[in-house]
């Protein structure tokens, strides 16, 4: 079963997301801060990374995503945001942000599962 890493500083969001994904049969590992997040990704090599855009610092999520790409980790990244769609102007799926898709917080379980499945399928095709 695919392994998914969730990195978010909000334990409730971590809990809710892992619950949903585990119930769909995915294996889930979690981290509460960017440093631990980087570590688990390097060690466990998940098939998908879910990343919160804001952790301790407003742009932590972006920096971590960029760090992954710099280290040649090409794992698809799904980003949790709480501002993107609301404002509709902050960022897009541009090169600046090496992210494959966004999920707006609060997270709807169905949407989350949908996006995860789609991204995993795409990654599979690329191989």
């Amino acid at each position: 079963m695919p392994l998914i890493a969730i990195i978010d500083d909000d334990p409730d969001i971590l809990d809710a997301s892992s619950l949903v994904l585990k119930s769909k049969g995915f294996d889930v590992i979690t981290a509460l801060n960017p440093n631990d997040g980087f570590k688990i990704v390097v060690e466990k090599k998940p098939d998908l990374i879910i990343l919160d855009v804001m952790m301790d610092e407003p742009d932590d999520g972006f920096f971590l995503a960029q760090k992954f790409r710099k280290e040649k980790i090409q794992t698809p990244i799904l980003m949790y945001t709480s501002v993107s769609k609301t404002i509709g102007l902050d960022f897009d799926k541009s090169e600046m942000v090496p992210v494959d898709d966004f999920v707006e917080k609060p997270i709807s379980p169905d949407e989350l599962v949908d996006k995860v499945v789609t991204l995993l399928k795409k990654a599979e095709e690329r191989k």
Partner: peptide
């Protein structure tokens, strides 16, 4: 934004409970 963060968490938890994930 600070208010939105916990509220988002509440909503996410409610969603999974209502969707019978728990």
């Amino acid at each position: 934004h600070e208010i939105k963060t916990p509220l988002s968490a509440i909503k996410s938890i409610l969603d999974i409970v209502i969707s019978k994930y728990v």
